[in-house]
């Protein structure tokens, strides 16, 4: 379903974040247009999750400007919250509610009309419709992850933020996810996803970025010489952490 959106999906200027005296992000700039799909590489601990937490209003940047779908993160976090869908390491779901109940609960919090129907749709999109009546506790890790993804897309957010969404998913589910995210971007919305799986990241079509030393390095346009250089840097950066 095509969506008409103006301006930039994400615009970051001079973003900074540190924990105590430990720097995580600094001088971070990023402009992501609508219809783009950004795959973000980075070794463990370089701040991929922190960046996504800042973009989704869960953490506060120390300095810098950030606009999400045209809304200032600091001044209007509520507007940002209704416009992003988040998949994180935690599922945000309750073990003793069924998959459907979990989604309906969030649907109501987001103020959706007919949350039951929207929850059903989102679950069937992730192939979970037959398990929707089961309690989360009784679902496998991968299935819980799929419910978590359904939760993130249920309110049709123009921006999806996913933190290593492939972890815990089997091959089939990863394909399903890939299709979903590419459709999301193709419909004029925007997707940001982190991963440390180079094989997976390089095989997906999308803008590629590397997070290292507090900054974001984007790959040059497709087919230019930069491409192989970028490939090398990602491999080196991810290899260095091991």
């Amino acid at each position: 379903m095509p969506v008409n959106l103006v301006g930039d999906a994400i615009k970051l200027e001079g973003l900074e974040k540190s924990f105590g005296d430990w720097p995580v992000l600094w001088d971070l700039d990023l402009t992501l247009g609508w219809g783009q799909f950004l795959v973000l590489f980075g070794a463990n601990g370089v701040g991929k999750s922190t960046l996504l937490r800042i973009l989704s209003t869960q953490a506060r940047a120390d300095a810098g400007k950030a606009l999400i779908a045209g809304h200032d993160l600091r001044r209007n976090p509520q507007a940002v919250r209704s416009r992003v869908g988040v998949v994180a390491h935690q599922t945000f779901l309750y073990d003793d509610l069924t998959a459907l109940e979990n989604l309906v609960y969030y649907g109501r919090l987001f103020g959706l009309n007919d949350p039951e129907k929207k929850a059903d749709e989102a679950l069937s999109r992730l192939g979970m419709d037959r398990r929707s009546g089961q309690r989360l506790r009784n679902l496998s890790h991968g299935m819980q992850k799929r419910v978590a993804i359904a939760r993130a897309i249920m309110h049709q957010p123009p921006i999806l933020l996913l933190d290593e969404p492939e972890s815990g998913l089997d091959r089939g589910s990863v394909e399903l996810l890939k299709k979903l995210l590419q459709e999301w971007a193709a419909s004029g919305r925007a997707v940001v996803m982190t991963t440390h799986d180079t094989e997976l990241g390089f095989s997906w079509t999308g803008q590629l970025g590397l997070l290292a030393e507090g900054k974001l390095h984007l790959r040059g346009p497709e087919g230019t010489g930069d491409s192989t250089e970028f490939h090398r840097r990602v491999t080196v950066s991810l290899g260095a952490s091991r």
């Binding site: 209003t57 869960q58 509520q78 599922t91 945000f92 309750y94 969030y106 919090l109 987001f110």
Partner: peptide, 18 residues
């Protein structure tokens, strides 16, 4: 503690609720 187990509180804070 129940809200912390699977990040329910984080999910709650992510929703556009005051």
């Amino acid at each position: 503690v129940r809200e912390m187990e699977q990040g329910g509180l984080a999910g709650l804070l992510l929703s556009p609720v005051s």
